[in-house]
């Protein structure tokens, strides 16, 4: 039960992060390998404002997320759009965007290391609270609830608004979306920015209960990618269930075997997915 509850709480943030990555890959067609760095940036912002000015991470969230949105929008406009334009095929765009986002990722890690090279340690809402017979830290619960609220808003926006529908249209078929008068370029840029902002939000939340450092982003990128692939690209329901599986398996391995093996566990799941359900948990096998 302990494992289930902590796994569930962890999965909330994972699902949120994966949703952001899903948007970036599914809509803007950019495989963003700098996603983890947006998480770490959020964590760094929360850590820095808390230790330097005693600002609550929840307040930081309100400032960091719009900033990240703007920053990611600039990244798309300046660095990634030229790649989209010059790509002759989806394959070439994939290779170029992978390399470019690696570059962005390393550059960001380099900058963050020079800002703060040590662990981002701080203590926020670290008091125990009991739910479902299990004792967990309040910060985990708060992070989970906020992640759920943000995720739900995102889901409702995609489903029930005009702009959300435009985003889904681009995800299904960019060419057809253009024909019905959707500004694909603009939608892609905004979706990419949104995905980055969501990652930053996830980073702020995660930093309240996990200690990060400047170079740990790649691990989060890996996990988010595994969730997206396991859930199926573009499948929000799949991503939530995949995040749950990953969160619980990781927590189980960390408590029962060894905390150093969470990545190994994630890989094991990844391998099973690649071998048996490469199209995602609920996806149809496409040919």
């Amino acid at each position: 039960m302990d494992i289930f509850v902590s796994g569930l709480l962890l999965a909330g943030t994972y699902a949120l992060i994966a949703m952001g990555l899903n948007l970036q890959y599914g809509v803007a067609r950019i495989m963003n390998l700098a996603n983890g760095e947006m998480i770490v940036l959020g964590a760094l912002a929360a850590f820095w404002s808390f230790t330097a000015y005693q600002i609550s991470p929840l307040v930081t969230l309100l400032v960091a997320v719009p900033l990240s949105f703007f920053g990611n929008w600039l990244i798309y406009k300046i660095l990634l759009r030229p790649l989209v334009r010059r790509a002759k095929s989806q394959g070439q765009l994939e290779v170029d965007s992978i390399l470019a986002t690696f570059g962005i990722s390393f550059a960001l890690v380099g900058i963050m290391v020079s800002i703060h090279g040590a662990y981002f340690t701080y203590s926020f809402l670290a008091n125990p609270i009991e739910i479902l017979g299990t004792t967990v830290a309040q910060n985990r619960l708060v992070a989970f609830l906020i992640a759920v609220v943000i995720g739900a808003c995102l889901f409702l926006w995609l489903r029930h608004t005009r702009s959300g529908t435009a985003v889904r249209a681009v995800a299904v078929n960019a060419e057809s979306a253009r024909l019905v008068g959707i500004n694909v370029d603009r939608v892609s840029a905004l979706t990419f920015a949104l995905g980055g902002a969501i990652a930053t939000a996830g980073g702020v939340l995660i930093s309240t209960f996990i200690t990060l450092d400047a170079s740990i982003g790649v691990i989060f990128t890996m996990k988010a990618l595994i969730i997206v692939i396991m859930g199926g690209v573009g499948d929000i329901r799949g991503a939530i269930i995949a995040a749950l599986i990953l969160g619980i398996v990781e927590t189980a391995v960390a408590t029962l075997v060894d905390p150093g093996l969470t990545l190994v566990a994630a890989y094991f799941i990844f391998l099973l997915v690649l071998l048996f359900r490469p199209q995602g948990l609920f996806g149809r096998r496409s040919v």
């Binding site: 690696f102 570059g103 390393f106 550059a107 380099g110 290391v113």
Partner: peptide, 17 residues
């Protein structure tokens, strides 16, 4: 010695663009 990662990132970007 502290800027190697940053340099690696810039090198990637230079090559791609």
């Amino acid at each position: 010695p502290n800027s190697t990662t940053l340099f690696l990132g810039i090198a990637f970007l230079l090559i791609v663009y």
